[in-house]
Write a protein that binds this DNA or RNA. Sequence first.
DNA 1: ACAGTCACTACACACGCGTATAGCGTCCTG
DNA 2: CAGGACGCTATACGCGTGTGTAGTGACTGT
Lengths: 235, 235
Amino acid sequence: MATTQPDPEDLTARARIRDAALLQFGEHGFERATIREIAKAAGVSSGLVRHHFGSKQELREACDEFMYRTVRKLSDQARAGLVHGAFGDLNHLAAARAVLLPYQNYLARALADGTAAALFDQMVDITEEWLARADEKRAGAPPAASRKARATVLTAMAMAVPVLHQHVSRSIGADMFTPEGDREVAYALIDLYSHALITPDDAATARDALDTVWSKQPPADRDAVIRAFEEQNDD
Amino acid sequence: MATTQPDPEDLTARARIRDAALLQFGEHGFERATIREIAKAAGVSSGLVRHHFGSKQELREACDEFMYRTVRKLSDQARAGLVHGAFGDLNHLAAARAVLLPYQNYLARALADGTAAALFDQMVDITEEWLARADEKRAGAPPAASRKARATVLTAMAMAVPVLHQHVSRSIGADMFTPEGDREVAYALIDLYSHALITPDDAATARDALDTVWSKQPPADRDAVIRAFEEQNDD
DNA sequence: ACAGTCACTACACACGCGTATAGCGTCCTG
DNA sequence: CAGGACGCTATACGCGTGTGTAGTGACTGT
């Protein structure tokens, strides 16, 4: 059986610890994961973890930075081989996904609890570049929000599927890390990205409505809020 | 100064504990939040928390169920007052947002770590109904993915902004829970939802490319994967 | 040959945590 | 007026955890 990853035996102890931490943090979360268990998984003593990383928090930061470097390397690779197909090179995308797959859980948790800021910002930058090219071909009215804001929200949306992968898998009835589930999710994503969900008219209406809500606080909201609260105090 | 929420003094001790737990879990996460701190915030002894909820885990489950009931009530309200404007009633949406605002952090964390499954599934159901109506007006080729799958992915996307709110706020340079940040995010969302990001042709190309990837594992991927790994083992 | 550094281990400490238990006052019920 | 159920507190226990420290062997430069 061929290993797609370098033999863990070939890595330095420090790298093995980081790798084990990535996996343990990803599986159990930062708090529940223990230094002793990470050490055991890496085949070292718990003291060595402290020796190399100082503290659990610093170990986490090392993990974050490793992921940041990994994603950066991946995106540089993709950028270098760009101007290929319709939207980036699908081979690079597939490669990136394959590389990140074992760390998916860590990535999801890190993003969700607010660490890995540099990593997110980096993804926003990538998205913003992509959006700049998309805007050139864009027809109709100019965007109502800044490119940065749109890139940010779009990045968050793109991360939603990995971050909420447990729910996504359960809801579609297939593990999204198997080919079947993956296909279903990818097709759904392509469909959603290639169709506008609301019409430009609806969009204008929504913007107007929001402007009204923001300018004067409509009393209807308050009533609904209070009613909702009163009704739910039934325990 | 008017309180938008019912006076905490009016709630039963049990409700106050649950409320405090929701806030503490939301702010610090389930593991870091302590029963003692929750009890202090609720103005009771830590023993009472155990008396009412049995264990920390059961307290969490009670919180999840409370959020589930809250969202359900909110969606029932919205459903009852539906058939109004372009897409649901914006007043109800605003009210729901106002009600959920204090629990945003809890919701985000619960979703991210895979609990609150019932809550997510409920949201998928709501999205699926919405999608069914949208599909009626849909032009062009029929969807390539099941409605359930599209609703699932769309729900995940919709939750992305609240779940990753820390990153979103930082990236747009304004707290998304203040009017300024909220407006920027909402406008970005409306813009993204009202414009197709890729053309139907691109979509077809992407599907073909994915089918190729899935049918025969192209060696280019493996190479890229291994190259990426080799290059990043530099620490 | 020798001192020093470094990767690494074993062991112990202190502390915060969830949990358990005993007890107190109050209110309802027969 | 007993008596039990209930809401609630105070206090203690035990365990797992991150962290600290002392020590060992191997390799290195002088």
